[in-house]
Each structure stands twice: as structure tokens, then as C-alpha cells.
Amino acid sequence: MTRKLSDMDLEELWQLFPICLEQHNECWKTWYKEELAILQAILPSNVIKRISHIGSTSINTIWAKPTVDILIEVINGYDLQYIANILVHKGYLCMNKSKNRISLNKGYMINGFAEKVYHLHISYEGDNAELYFRDYLIENVNIAKKYEKLKLELWKKYEHNRDAYTDAKTDFIVKYTKQAEALYKNRYR
């Protein structure tokens, strides 16, 4: 009998889905555009403020996990769970849920990663610090390279502990996101 991902504990999942970084691959932009078309076809446009490619795969100059991160901003007043339910019925898996954020994934299989892997982050409009961080790294290659160096240093140390890997990057991300928000002001607000 084959186990389901939902039956596995965190340690088993981290072993099955280790952190893996690779040089930038132009196909990630194509994967984003393909997934964007799917999302636009299945999500009600009157509820969605913006859908954006975020994360390291959106930055041409740095290594990244081959996972395309997508931010879906929902117009304030609508239920995030409504959007998540649509996506779950289309094959996405809910990874994490809080009052103002829901994360889903696609491409996690019982035998490991599929060829194309996606993380969807659903938030309310204006809850989009990732856009500021992305833009800052795109426009400041030297800072992007510092971020890449940090990620490469953390990769092997936390290969099988995604939470620790993410936590170890947090101070860097917060620092440069604040600088970006001050510089770009209300670019995405």
C-alpha cells in the first residue's frame, strides 16, 4: 500500500524533498507564464488584485531552488479560503494556513519532486513584501549575489530542514525588504 504525503511526518517529508539549489534557468519564466495562464483561467478575476512571479527563480542573476513561487493577491474583503478551495480542487496541496496567508504547492509527488514545482502564496492585496525584495535584488546585483552566497552557505547545512533554512535567511530578507519599501514607497500598495 502506497503512503500519502499527508501521512508523512515532517522529517520524512524533508528527506523526500531536500533543499536543492541550481543556477538560474530561463525555463522558470516559461513555467511561471504557463502557470499564470492556468491560474487566470480558474480564478475569478473580480477577486484577484495581482498575480506575480516572486522568489529566487524570478531573479536572473542568482541560484535558486527549482521551485517557481507565485504570489496571488486577493482584493481585501474576499475570503482567502475561497481561492484556496478552488486551487485545492484543481490539484494543489495546502501546505500552510494562517488568518492572512495560505500557501499551496504543486509538484510534490510521493516519489519526490515532479519536473515542475510551484509554491503559491495567497495573501490580501498590499501584503506583498516579496515584490519589493524581488525588485531590490533585480536592481542591485551586488545584494543579490550576497543573498545567493548566503543561500549557498545554508544549503548543505540545512538540506533536510526547510524551516531552519528559511529562518536563517530571515534577517537578510527583512533588512533588504525594508530598504526596498523605503526606496520604492507605494510601488505595490
Score class of each variant (00 low, 15 high):
Leu80Asn: 03
His89Cys: 09
Glu130Pro: 01
Leu71Arg: 04
Tyr136Gln: 01
Pro66Phe: 14
Lys97Gly: 08
Lys65Ile: 08
Asp135Phe: 07
Val47Ser: 06
Val74Pro: 01
Val88Lys: 15
Ile51Gln: 04
Lys156Ala: 12
Asn76Glu: 12
Ala41Tyr: 06
Gly77Trp: 09
Asn128His: 08
Leu104Phe: 06
Lys116Glu: 11
Ala41Gln: 09
Ile138Ala: 00
Ser123Leu: 09
Ile122Arg: 00
Asn128Cys: 15
Glu153Arg: 12
Ala114Lys: 03
Leu104Gly: 01
Ala64Thr: 08
Lys90Arg: 15
Lys146Asp: 09
Thr61Tyr: 05
Ile48Cys: 05
Lys97Ser: 13
Leu80Ile: 06
Ile138Glu: 02
Ile54Tyr: 09
Leu152Arg: 12
His89Leu: 12
Asp69His: 11
Trp63Leu: 02
Asp69Leu: 06
Leu43Arg: 02
Leu104Cys: 04
Thr67Phe: 11
Leu120Gln: 00
Ile42Pro: 01
Gly91His: 08
Tyr78Asn: 14
Glu153Ile: 09
Ser56Asp: 03
Tyr82Lys: 15
Trp63His: 13
Ile143Glu: 05
Asn85Lys: 13
Ser45Lys: 12
Lys99Trp: 08
Ala144Phe: 08
Lys49Trp: 03
His160Asn: 11
Gly126Met: 07
Met95Thr: 14
Val88Ser: 15
Leu80Ala: 10
Ser103Glu: 10
Glu115Arg: 14
Tyr82Trp: 08
Leu154Tyr: 05
Leu80Met: 04
Glu73Gly: 10
Tyr92Pro: 02
Ile122Thr: 04
Val88Ile: 15
Ile48Tyr: 03
Lys151Met: 05
Ile110Glu: 12
Glu130Gly: 12
Ser52Leu: 04
Ala129Trp: 09
Leu152Gln: 13
Gly126Arg: 04
Leu154His: 02
Leu43Cys: 06
Glu130Phe: 07
Ile59Lys: 07
Ile42Gly: 06
Tyr147Ile: 03
Ile54Thr: 12
Glu73Met: 15
Arg162Tyr: 11
Gly126Gln: 03
Ser103Tyr: 13
Asn100Glu: 07
Lys116Met: 05
His89Gly: 09
Asn111Thr: 12
Ser56Lys: 07
Tyr158Thr: 05
Ala144Met: 02
Tyr147Asn: 00
Arg162Glu: 02
Ile75Val: 15
Ser123Ile: 02
Glu130His: 06
Gln40Val: 08
Phe133Asp: 00
Glu130Asp: 10
Lys97Pro: 00
Gln40His: 10
Leu154Ile: 04
Asp127Ser: 14
Ile143Ala: 10
Glu148Cys: 00
Asn161Ala: 10
Asn111Cys: 12
Leu131His: 02
Gly77His: 08
Asn76Met: 10
Gly107Ser: 08
Ile51His: 04
Gly126Trp: 07
Asn46Leu: 07
Tyr78Gly: 01
Ser58Met: 05
Lys146Glu: 14
Ile48Pro: 01
Trp63Asp: 04
Gly112Gln: 03
Leu93Val: 13
Gly55Pro: 00
Gly77Phe: 13
Gly77Pro: 02
Asn105Phe: 11
Ile138Cys: 10
Glu153Trp: 09
Asp69Phe: 12
Asp127Thr: 10
Lys65Val: 11
Asp79Val: 08
Tyr118Ser: 05
Ile48His: 06
Ile51Leu: 13
